[in-house]
Nucleic acid binder design. Structure first.
Lengths: 199, 199
DNA sequence: GTCTATATGGGGATAGAC
DNA sequence: GTCTATCCCCATATAGAC
């Protein structure tokens, strides 16, 4: 097997395990076992655990970037694009109820460890934030675009957190519906100049 | 120093460290050092790390219970009580930006570790949930009380998560204001029979 | 109740054979 | 590139003196 292929397999396995169990709780042995590799051979591909983490974060950032670009192409309107974001909660509901939001939980864990990579992790959150802000700006809400982006991002993080704590699928559906209703309100406000709705 | 006094000091130090660094990342040595105790003596008071965790969760649940009861006494209206809940975000903003929500981060960490105490941790979240639901019921919203409680709890969790990720104090203030506006809407809806606002 | 000394195990990391 | 063997450190946990 080629080295780059093995490396890719390691990063994929680490990505999954870091999500399911967390970064700290995942050992080299866990990843090695998942890939079918000996522990010793590991260090041919990665000199330290932090290097695997960096590769995982980079992979997640790239996948996020690709997903956001795909939504750009698939949807005509900014409204539909924001709806696509909100609907990740439904599409990934099983995983979210089991392990939370992959981005949010990693940010939270790295922040607590004061890990050097914590800013890289919250950078993924910023990818969503900036993309959402561009969508709200496209809706004609330039002035409040970032605040609206943070608001919807906050709600998706809150829903993921409680869905994981209570394992409640009905709660996810209800809150996604509420987020859609909120979005419709914001879109309506963009058309009429008076009475901009609050967050 | 009496044994019960030492025990209390251990639990207090562990509570703080579990919050600041997380449960897994905190070692016996860390707690022992904080209390000024030798590692060995530790096992006189707690046979295992899980026992300290149980004591910390119990302490947090008791403090939560006391806080909720205090709000009951201090506020005349259910609306004021719910506002008191929302305002924890402001009162604790420095801690929250540094380490997140004490309840949310513990729930998240224990859920990932598949720790036996994970349900005890989410039990603290349930204390808030049930208390909030009672307040919404007192507002005359019996049918939706639990959904409204989960909604406001979700928002506080989301705000704490993003505030920690972005270290953004202005964001907290803005979202607390939005939560208060949402609450006023819900109160207004309780008085008028028509047009109940969505979440 | 508190200490020091120590056992035990796991996890990160290295050396060197193949 | 992959392996086995090994080192070292740290953390949980125990034993036994004081």
């Amino acid at each position: 097997m080629g080295a780059s292929d093995t490396r890719r397999q390691i990063v994929e396995a680490a990505d999954r395990l870091f999500y399911e169990r967390g970064f700290e709780a995942t050992s080299f042995a866990d990843i090695a076992e998942a890939v079918g590799l000996s522990r010793g051979n590991f260090y041919y591909h990665f000199k330290a655990k932090d290097e695997i983490l960096a590769a995982v974060i980079e992979r997640r950032a790239a996948k996020t970037h690709a997903m956001l670009r795909e939504w750009e192409g698939a949807s005509e309107s900014a409204r539909e694009r924001i709806r696509a974001f909100v609907h990740i909660l439904i599409a990934n509901k099983t995983m979210i109820m089991a392990h939370g939001c992959p981005v949010g939980t990693l940010c939270s864990e790295l922040a607590r460890l004061e890990h050097v990579a914590k800013n890289d992790a919250s950078g993924i959150l910023s990818l969503f934030r900036d993309w959402l802000a561009r969508q709200f700006a496209a809706l004609g809400r330039q002035a409040e675009a970032d605040a609206l982006a943070l608001h919807i991002l906050m709600r998706s993080q809150g829903v993921a957190a409680l869905a994981a704590a209570f394992r409640d699928e009905e709660f996810i559906r209800r809150e996604v519906e509420a987020m859609e209703a909120w979005l419709e309100n914001q879109c309506a406000a963009a058309s009429s100049l008076k009475s901009r709705p609050r967050l």
